[in-house]
Amino acid sequence: MVAIYVLLGLMIVGAIVAIEVKNLLSAVVALGTVGLMMSILFLLMKAPDVAITLLVVEILAVIILIRATIKRDVEVPEEKDRPIGGLIALAFLLVLTLVSAGAFGELPPFGEPQMRVASYYLDQGYSLEGEPGGTGAANVVASVILDYRAYDTLGEATVLFTAVVGVLAVMRKVGRKKDRLATAKEPTEEGGSA
């Protein structure tokens, strides 16, 4: 229990470092530490599926962000914040936190979930051959995302496909610089419509 609070505090410190440090590369590395600490936190909260997924996803996100920031203007000469806007935002977020603290009091307390829906999945169990109900999978999370609630996964697949098409469309070379396209004989199918 203490470990959860310590890791949460470290995450907040890491997040503040990530948004305040001058060098952009350091900011990306600090973001990576936030992700790794959250992965440990998921493991402590008994969610191993989510912990594995977050670990690898965070590695890929850090790689992508480093490819984006490195060799571009890594040291920003004068990165001015907006002082007035920042103070207003700080005050607003403080009020938001206080109000939401009142709302969190209405939730079930930490460590005692109500599980109105999930108790159905757990009661079904893994159901042996020939029995009705259940999916036969030992991992309840897998049976939720791929059997009971597979519509969610279908929607997720759609969003992922849209994001991939969006990245390929934004990054395509065709039709961007006409003169360069005429001289360079590069294959242009990388950025075509997927």
Partner: peptide, 13 residues
């Protein structure tokens, strides 16, 4: 297990 399933898709998105 239900929030685990929701978060699993949300991370990849």
């Amino acid at each position: 297990p239900l929030p685990h399933a929701l978060v699993l898709t949300a991370i990849v998105i």
